[in-house]
C-alpha cells in the first residue's frame, strides 16, 4: 500500500518546488532584473564596444590611454577588416593555419597585432583585449556561430 503515500508526497512537494523556482533559493543575492538594470549592463558593454572600435581603427589617444601599442606600421585592424569583415569571430576556436595551432579569437588578435601590424602583443585578459573582442563580437552579432569552420 505505498501508492497513496507517494501521491501524498507529490501533492505536498510540487507547490514547494514551483515556489522555489519562482523566488529563487533562500539567500539569493540577485534582485529581479529591471529595465534600468538591463540598460546599465548594456551601457557597460557598449562602452567596451566603443573603446574596441577606436582601438580597432588605430585611434592613438585610446591606445595611449590603455597603454598598448597595437601597430608600428601605420596599419590598423580596420584596414584589412572594415566593419570587422573577414574576422569571422564566430568560427573560433579553430585550427588556424598561420599559427599552426588550435587557436582562440584572442590568439588571432594577437597574431595580427604582432605580424601584419608589427605591434606589441597584449595580455589575454587585458582591458584592451576585452574591448577589441567586444567590438568584434558586437559588429558580427548577426553572423552564425560556426566554431571550427575554416
Amino acid at each position: 500500500m505505498t501508492a497513496p503515500i507517494t501521491r501524498f508526497i507529490l501533492f505536498r512537494a510540487t507547490p514547494a518546488v514551483a515556489l522555489a523556482v519562482l523566488v529563487g533559493p533562500a539567500g539569493a543575492h540577485k534582485d529581479p532584473v529591471t529595465p534600468q538594470l538591463l540598460n546599465s549592463y548594456q551601457q557597460v558593454f557598449m562602452e567596451q564596444v566603443r573603446k574596441g572600435d577606436l582601438l580597432f581603427h588605430g585611434d592613438a589617444a585610446t591606445e595611449q590611454a590603455m597603454d598598448v601599442v597595437l601597430s608600428k606600421t601605420g596599419m590598423a585592424c580596420a584596414m584589412c577588416h572594415p566593419m570587422t569583415a573577414d574576422t569571422h569571430p564566430a568560427t573560433f576556436p579553430k585550427y588556424q593555419a598561420q599559427m599552426a595551432k588550435f587557436a582562440t579569437l584572442r590568439d588571432m588578435i594577437n597574431w595580427c597585432i604582432e605580424k601584419p601590424n608589427q605591434g606589441e602583443k597584449i595580455a589575454d585578459d587585458s582591458e584592451a583585449m576585452k574591448a577589441l573582442e567586444a567590438y568584434i563580437y558586437w559588429s558580427q552579432s548577426g553572423s552564425v556561430l560556426n566554431p571550427g569552420k575554416f
Binding site: 564596444v49 577606436l54 566593419m83 553572423s143 560556426n146
Partner: peptide
C-alpha cells in the same frame, strides 16, 4: 563563411 556586419559607431559618438 557568410557575415552580417554592423557599421561602426565610435566615430559618431566620439
Amino acid at each position: 563563411i557568410p557575415e552580417v556586419l554592423r557599421p561602426r559607431i565610435a566615430d559618431n559618438i566620439w
